Computed example of a mutant assay.
Amino acid sequence: MTSSTQAPPAPPAAGGTGRTTIPPVKVGRAQTTFYWMVWPAVIAFFLFHTVPVLVGIFYSFTNYAGYGGWNFVGLSNYANLFKDDRILAAYGFSFLFAIAATILTNAISLAIAMGLNAKIMARNLFRGVYFVPYVLAALVIGYVFQFLFSSSLPKILSGIPLIADNILTNETWAWTAIVALAVWQACAFTIIIYLSGLQTIPRELYEAASLDGAKPWRQFSSITFPLISAFFTINVVLSLKGFLQVFDQIVALTNGGPGTATESVTLLIFRGGFSGGEFAYQSANAVIFFIVITIVSLFQFKVLQRREADF
């Protein structure tokens, strides 16, 4: 009887350790690829964003009308802004609109997100449906709503005087139609953010709270809202910042009218700067508006993040 023998393993190469070696990563090539990808974006951002901003700041200290020559006027444009009733009215409208739209957007979006986060049938389908308004062009949707408010609703709801007379022509209430359009479109993105936050909350917390006898409102105030407070902060800051810069919805629905009742700061800057011969003056207005939005956003972060820490 003969026994089979196995060939001995091949010895490692001379000077080797017997282990498989991994070739070193070529760091230099990776860094080169990274720079080739990043630098074009940085250069494009600088040319198409930073340079125009710096040019606008420069012209804000002049009397440039958008054509012809110009002279330095120092801070006179900035001083005149605080004496201009039309600009002050535009700031008042912008803040009124932004605050109302921010509150409604976040309240409605959070309620819808909580419904979508529950165990309901076809919730993924509903998520897609609710996100549709965000991907549609604001001007296109604005013109659809303009037809709705000016032609359809006055016939359908002819018994309501405010709507029957075309709310878009009412100086006192025209802004509410713009709020309705802006909130309808903004809720899409806000719902997605809230859904992301709600999905981070373990179901076990609600089960434990239910066993302890906590009612739905108690669960919301003690579990849901504290745990999504960071998402709430992001949504509120982004909503208020975006609504302060409202432009497309106003152009589509009222174009700033009746009169100047719905004229926002951004619409005023566009009108005066590009067609009103006030390029330098409205450039100064844009600088002030940028500072105002920055201060408001930082204040929101400070207050809301402190609330997160308290939770």
Rank of each mutant, 00 (worst) to 15 (best):
R218Y: 15
L195R: 01
A209C: 08
V236N: 06
Q219L: 07
T260R: 09
S264R: 04
F232R: 01
P226C: 03
Y194P: 09
A208H: 08
V236L: 15
Y206A: 04
K241H: 11
R271N: 15
G256E: 04
S264H: 10
F220A: 12
P226E: 01
E204A: 13
A209R: 00
T233G: 10
I223K: 11
I269H: 00
Y206G: 05
G259A: 14
K215R: 15
G197K: 02
L244M: 10
P216R: 03
A252Q: 06
L253C: 05
L244H: 01
Q219G: 09
V251H: 06
S221W: 13
A209G: 06
R271F: 04
E263P: 11
I223C: 12
S221T: 14
Q249L: 03
Q199C: 07
T266Y: 05
I234A: 12
G272S: 02
S264I: 06
G257T: 08
W217L: 13
R271L: 13
L195Y: 02
W217D: 07
A252K: 03
G272T: 04
R203Q: 14
F232D: 02
A261C: 11
F225H: 13
D248Q: 02
F243D: 05
N255Y: 02
Q199S: 14
L253T: 01
T260C: 10
F270Y: 13
I223L: 11
V237G: 10
I269R: 00
G213C: 13
V251K: 10
L244R: 03
D212M: 11
A252E: 11
A230I: 10
P216C: 06
R218F: 15
T262H: 07
I234L: 15
F232K: 04
S264M: 09
L211D: 14
S229E: 13
N255F: 03
F243E: 04
L227I: 00
D248C: 11
V236H: 05
S264K: 06
S264V: 09
K241R: 13
E207F: 07
T260N: 12
T254F: 00
